[in-house]
Amino acid sequence: KFNKELSVAGREIVTLPNLNDPQKKAFIFSLWDDPSQSANLLAEAKKLNDAQAPK
């Protein structure tokens, strides 16, 4: 279960257009550290992506 959630969340995070590479890497490392938090980490990444969207 975690492997699928981890890969789905990881793929989504790397495609978020408004995150820079260090931010993406930080989220990916957090996913590896605790795969059970993949849904929460993906939600946080999406929030940050939205907040950094060009206005």
Rank of each mutant, 00 (worst) to 15 (best):
L42S: 01
A43K: 09
R11A: 10
N3E: 13
K46Q: 08
Q52Y: 04
G10P: 02
V14T: 08
I28C: 12
Q23C: 05
L41P: 01
V14H: 07
K25M: 14
E12L: 13
V14L: 15
K1Q: 12
V8N: 12
K55G: 11
A26W: 15
L42K: 02
D21V: 09
D50Q: 10
I13S: 02
I13Q: 00
P54S: 08
A51Y: 09
L41Y: 04
N20Y: 08
L48P: 00
E12Q: 11
V8A: 14
L42V: 12
S36M: 07
L31T: 02
D50T: 07
N40M: 13
K24Q: 01
S7C: 15
I13M: 03
D33H: 10
L31N: 00
V14P: 02
N20I: 05
E12H: 08
K55Y: 10
A51C: 12
D33F: 13
A9Q: 05
A39L: 11
L16P: 01
P54I: 09
E44I: 12
P35S: 03
F27C: 04
L41T: 06
S7I: 14
L48R: 04
I28D: 01
N40P: 04
A43M: 11
A51E: 10
F2Q: 09
N40W: 14
L31Y: 00
K47F: 06
L6N: 04
D50V: 07
L6A: 14
W32H: 06
L19I: 03
D34W: 02
Q23P: 01
K47T: 07
P22Y: 15
L48F: 03
L16T: 01
N49H: 00
T15C: 15
L31G: 01
A39W: 08
D33W: 10
L16Q: 03
N3I: 13
P54Y: 08
Q37R: 07
L6E: 04
W32E: 07
R11L: 13
A43H: 05
W32I: 09
T15M: 14
A39P: 05
A9E: 08
A45R: 01
E44K: 10
N20K: 09
V14Y: 13
L16R: 01
F2T: 09
N49Y: 02
K47V: 07
L31K: 00
K25I: 13
L6G: 04
L19S: 03
K1Y: 14
K24A: 02
V14R: 10
E5G: 09
D21P: 11
K47N: 05
N49G: 01
I28L: 13
L19K: 00
A45W: 02
S38D: 04
S36T: 10
K4I: 11
I13K: 00
N20G: 05
A53D: 08
L31V: 03
W32K: 03
W32S: 05
R11M: 12
P22T: 15
S38R: 05
A9F: 12
L42M: 05
Q23H: 00
D34I: 03
P35T: 03
I13D: 00
E12F: 15
E5I: 12
N20D: 09
A9D: 04
L16V: 00
S36V: 05
S7D: 09
K24F: 04
A51K: 10
D33K: 14
G10I: 15
N3H: 12
L48G: 00
N40D: 09
N49P: 00
G10R: 13
K4Q: 12
K55D: 10
K47S: 10
K24L: 04
D34K: 05
A53E: 08
A26Q: 10
T15F: 10
A53M: 08
K55P: 11
K4N: 11
K25L: 14
L19Y: 00
D33S: 14
L31S: 02
A26T: 06
N3T: 12
G10Y: 15
N49E: 02
Q23W: 03
F29C: 13
A26H: 11
V8Q: 12
S30A: 14
G10A: 15
F27G: 00
L19H: 01
K1S: 12
T15A: 14
A9M: 11
V8L: 13
T15K: 14
D50Y: 06
F2M: 11
P35E: 04
R11C: 15
S30T: 07
K25P: 03
R11P: 02
G10K: 10
K25F: 14
L16C: 05
V14N: 12
F29H: 07
K46I: 10
F27M: 03
I13Y: 01
L31H: 00
A45K: 01
N40Q: 13
A9Y: 10
K24V: 05
V8E: 13
Q52F: 04
W32L: 10
P17S: 06
A43C: 10
A53Y: 05
Q52K: 04
N3A: 12
K46P: 01
N20E: 05
K1W: 15
F29G: 04
A45Q: 00
L16A: 02
K55H: 11
E5K: 09
L6K: 03
T15S: 13
Q37P: 02
A51L: 12
K47Y: 06
L42G: 01
L48E: 02
L41M: 05
R11T: 08
A26D: 05
T15N: 14
P17Y: 03
G10Q: 14
I28S: 03
V8W: 14
A39E: 12
K46M: 08
F27S: 00
A39G: 07
A9W: 11
A53G: 08
K55L: 13
N20T: 15
F27T: 00
L48I: 06
G10L: 15
I13T: 01
S7W: 15
N49A: 02
F29A: 07
K46C: 05
P22A: 15
Q23R: 01
L48V: 06
D21C: 15
N3P: 11
L16M: 11
F29D: 05
K4R: 11
F29K: 08
P35C: 04
P35A: 04
F27Q: 00
N20S: 15
